[in-house]
Amino acid sequence: MDLSREVRLTSAEAAVFSLRSLYESCGYGRFKVNKFEEYDFYASCKSFLMSENVLTFTDSTGRLMALKPDITLSIVKNVGASGDGPQKVYYNESVFRDSGDGNGFREITQTGLERVGEVDTAAVCEAVELACRSLDLLRAGKSAVLDLSHVGVVSAILDAEGVGEAVRGAVASLMGDKNAGELMRAATGAGISAAGAEKLCRLATLYGTPADVRDELYSAAGDVPGCAPALEELYAVVASLPDGLRRMIRFDFSAAGDMKYYTGAVFRGYIDGIPRSVLSGGRYGGLLPEYGAAHGGIGFAVYTDLLEYAGGGRGATLVFDDPEVK
């Protein structure tokens, strides 16, 4: 019998190994979460989920259970309860989400990390650097960019305009589409001043390297009370990165409207040739206060299944030891 000792890894498999090595080398410990969670847990924090649709089933004791739609909430719940200061963990798990395109639920494989607890600028720098390094490991010779923005900039503009929750949702959605025309109409229609609406439109359509968009960014938002600290933090994060990684950064505030989940820096990673973002993350707070004080944090997920879009393997090969019994 031919006992093959070498296996060529798929892009996704190779990604999991390389990311695991990166995160462990930076002090992140493996965190294994259960595949299921009681449905009541998600019912209490629906606003933090991408979709309210959750795959449920009844377990052998009659409890209504859900297949996890999100990993961060489970990690925050568990490590937040320990209260031992910042906890640094990484995971490699599947989540189950409504595809949103009428094709039902999909299993999505994610590898990611979370730093749960107090978050200062140094913690944001570390998370953004690791996000860049993750993209660099996975890009396989192609170009990669990390879009960076800050929820604080958009929320400061909306706070200054006294905007309520319902309008914030509509603004976030139109900003996410870079739909400046409708954003202007919706914002002014909702009572936002013409100057405030214009600031939102300029932010939604702004795109480029931190150096290239600096003047435009400060001109659009620099004079709004509360924006300056957020902008300073972003530029401090960029300045902290090594040159090679800094070149990956673009500022794009169209993703900064997600104020339900994120509270600070937000980032999304892209690799040329893969039609969706392969990495998504940011700073969060206010999650699950009933599970302990350390309910804030920063983290990101890499959608490893999308790497198959890039085609082919990465050339990585797994070699097994000689079997003792042949």
Partner: peptide, 10 residues
Amino acid sequence: SNKVSYKFKS
């Protein structure tokens, strides 16, 4: 526009 194309053919 495709979101990723917008990044790489900006």
